[in-house]
């Protein structure tokens, strides 16, 4: 099986870990917080709307 050629093992593992580490960093620092802020603002607006209807 070509998957089991040990010559490229280090290359594959290096690329995998480097890419996952970079992705985890960028997603957790820049992208996922934007999603959370968006969800929070939607919740806030819907609560404002509920309050104004109740008044």
């Amino acid at each position: 099986m070509p998957q089991l050629v040990p010559f490229y093992f280090v290359n594959e593992i290096t690329f995998t870990f480097a890419i996952i580490a970079i992705n985890v960093y960028i997603l957790s620092k820049y992208i996922l917080p934007r999603f959370v802020r968006l969800f929070l603002s939607r919740t806030f607006i819907s609560k404002l709307l509920d309050n104004s209807i109740n008044k």
């Binding site: 490229y8 290359n11 594959e12 690329f15 995998t16 890419i19 970079i22 992705n23 960028i26 997603l27 992208i31 934007r34 999603f35 802020r37 968006l38 603002s41 939607r42 607006i45």
Partner: peptide, 30 residues
């Protein structure tokens, strides 16, 4: 030291992942 086809496609995948996620934030529009 080499850039192999698997490394190349993993990099394309990472780039695609970031682009899709950035597009999906929709400029912070509600």
């Amino acid at each position: 030291i080499s850039i192999t086809n698997i490394g190349f496609y993993l990099t394309i995948g990472a780039f695609f992942l970031l682009v899709v996620n950035l597009l999906s934030t929709n400029y912070n529009k509600l």
